[in-house]
Write a protein that binds this DNA or RNA. Sequence first.
DNA 1: CGGAGCATGTAAGCGGTTACATGATTTC
DNA 2: GAAATCATGTAACCGCTTACATGCTCCG
Lengths: 184, 184
Amino acid sequence: MSLPHAILTALLEKPSSGLELTRRFDKSIGFFWAATHQQIYRELGKLEQSGLIRAIPGPPAQGRRKEYEVLPSGREELAAWVARSDEPRALRDPLALRLRAAAMVGVGEGSLGAEVRRHLGLHVAQLDAYRAMETRDFPDGKRDSAEAKLQHLVLQAGIEMERFWTGWLEQVDAVVAELEAEQP
Amino acid sequence: MSLPHAILTALLEKPSSGLELTRRFDKSIGFFWAATHQQIYRELGKLEQSGLIRAIPGPPAQGRRKEYEVLPSGREELAAWVARSDEPRALRDPLALRLRAAAMVGVGEGSLGAEVRRHLGLHVAQLDAYRAMETRDFPDGKRDSAEAKLQHLVLQAGIEMERFWTGWLEQVDAVVAELEAEQP
DNA sequence: CGGAGCATGTAAGCGGTTACATGATTTC
DNA sequence: GAAATCATGTAACCGCTTACATGCTCCG
């Protein structure tokens, strides 16, 4: 039940249309809870029906775009959710699985090494993106407001997570390259 | 499509019954791809029907337990899967989401801090478990065989992942405690 | 006015989760 | 021989993914 609350949070930060939300998910909240536009539209419909958000009546028909904003009951629901507790989600990583499988059937003909380096590239790019966001959005380290501190922490989780992946994938690359050399 | 291949890997490591597999998933492979016994039984049925594994005929009826083993076609399928490529899965973390939500609606009355520390405890426990596995299964650092090296890498991913979580959650705890003190 | 793309949706299918069912084995 | 537990399943649901559909707007 996280998606509706992710949307409520995003709408509190800034009222938006469905497409705007989709864009913003792609570049910030979505890093910790991805969602496609189909999910978002469906969820917006449900949230509106539940009376937690509403379409802003404002400009009568600026195209077909509907802007949504959070109602007081929506804010209450979100505050209640923040206080709830939840088990951490089990992580799912096919690449780690592939390595264990490779331990049983052997590393292929270079394809596994290539895949490892491809992933490494993706994580390096993501790490750079996060770092750019950090210098842009949180320039003065210690003087952040309460809200900014929390948002900064979330971004730091992204940064340290990607640092972990890149470091680990470099080790993996070294070992896989060695094994590929041994058994051709 | 990772679950069937996770099962093939586990069965190659050691032929097992459904329940045994469930147990082993809980304490090793499952760390990177969790599965319940219902999923496992369903998947075993599919894999047997596809001719990738078979129930070992051996001891006629030792209780009702069925032991499965991987057939040559199953090994081939797994090798082909190892060579395939795949996008990294988007991570999903409700706790990070909660922090962002808390940035908008405020940290509750200590419940968020308690939740953070609860998660911290869980990750510390997991980290200890991984470390125990490492000293038990990989005592002599550099002299591992090819298979052992790959398996060790996967375990190290688990260790570094948990190290990341515990480090980050400690930071989070400090900030949340501070904010809870400010706004009662 | 015609084509490109923007914006909002609908429908089908799949994998995973939760709840329930059934027989067989062990324990008291 | 009754209760508890082990072992293997079945069924229903729910969220996410993929593919497709529809209307609107902008631009040449």
